[in-house]
Design a protein around this nucleic acid. Sequence first.
DNA 1: CGCGCCCGTCACCGACTTGTTACCGGCCCG
DNA 2: CGGGCCGGTAACAAGTCGGTGACGGGCGCG
Lengths: 223, 223
Amino acid sequence: MKLLVVDDDPDLLALVAFALTNAGYGVVKAADAPEALRVFDAELPNLVILDINLPTGSGFDVCKAIRGRSEVPVMMLTARGEEEDLVRALELGADDYLTKPFSPRTLLARVKALLRRAGIEQGDMVQAGRVALDLEAHSISIDGGAPVRLTRLETRLLQILVAQAGHVVSAERLLAHVWGHRGSGDRQLLKQLVHRLRQKLERDPAGADLLHTESGVGYRLKA
Amino acid sequence: MKLLVVDDDPDLLALVAFALTNAGYGVVKAADAPEALRVFDAELPNLVILDINLPTGSGFDVCKAIRGRSEVPVMMLTARGEEEDLVRALELGADDYLTKPFSPRTLLARVKALLRRAGIEQGDMVQAGRVALDLEAHSISIDGGAPVRLTRLETRLLQILVAQAGHVVSAERLLAHVWGHRGSGDRQLLKQLVHRLRQKLERDPAGADLLHTESGVGYRLKA
DNA sequence: CGCGCCCGTCACCGACTTGTTACCGGCCCG
DNA sequence: CGGGCCGGTAACAAGTCGGTGACGGGCGCG
């Protein structure tokens, strides 16, 4: 799930991008109108978040241009007291708006609602660094590459590793999460699962080296 | 198609009910929280439109209570400036929201979109990508080709697959939708139905490969 | 009544998943 | 130097899952 965020304020742009990335979305950014359209055509995002006030050209033009080539949902960002602009934006085909300042939580809820309404609801998806794990489809994609199919256990293993990306996860904890208390203490189960998972990851050269062994402790997914 | 509208403002309630009735929907009304739940249980509507501000109990409680007993789509109505409430509503399981004031046209478009997404569109045709499913005639047409007759169960199966086209639908969910909770857990039923459906689809060469198996998860209709 | 269709059930096959055993090599430490 | 521990790898076996064919009961209809 790829989102395009357009804002000329670097701080706000970074904040929004951070919140969305953390929630597991792929984010591409643009700081002005021409760049926005360029990135849009190159990346074909599933949703656009667009500041009304842009230095070069206005957000209206971008919204209109996007509407000319796609039905993708567009959310406008506006400063308080610009309600008349808002009406214009909605008439131009924007799907929702958000008044600054807003909380990341509000942003996320709105983005989710928009995606749901547009019917491009994604499955449960978690992302960490270069890997995107699709819990619904049981697949993983590295650096946005072709998705690799995973088995049930592999998915469960990756789920916790992705959630704890960059940190070591103890073997005991992995065992508990994947097998429940049944497999407690059986390191062989884990060895095999890790081995099989690595074979799949290494089919994509970008995926080799992602899953590190922390000797005597557990495993760690590169962030 | 029956819709439940809940609002304590008699004017707004009448307006909304009028717009929906005019569009051909059956409408039942409620003015407060207890009445809403009573009417809900009695009428089992296909969609609920729910004001957040209710005199007795809040819209939240109603939303939660409804979610506790059904997956029916819920649309929340909110006044401008209640964005925090909105987030809470969406997290409680509401599917969409509308900020007052809104135009009847907007309301209708949203209601239609919600019903389409929920796959409870009645009567007419549902379409997704290259397939057009006729729920009345129990037939399907691929790429505008000759319609193929379907049985009752095949139609129900395709209904949810078309509604979720491009996304994996879990076996459990398919079973629940086609057979109700009776067939819960019986994969064999699903295997056979999918097999029979595929045979029909593959009579049209364009239809082969449309219904994809996601091993260990469920099935997915190509978008 | 007999026919055809719908659909639930059984049986079987091949592919995949998962648990288990065995073996290899490196490392630490006495 | 040698044994024990650890992690990686290979190979096998049992179990599971999905696809397919076949049978037959139920039902509506002429």
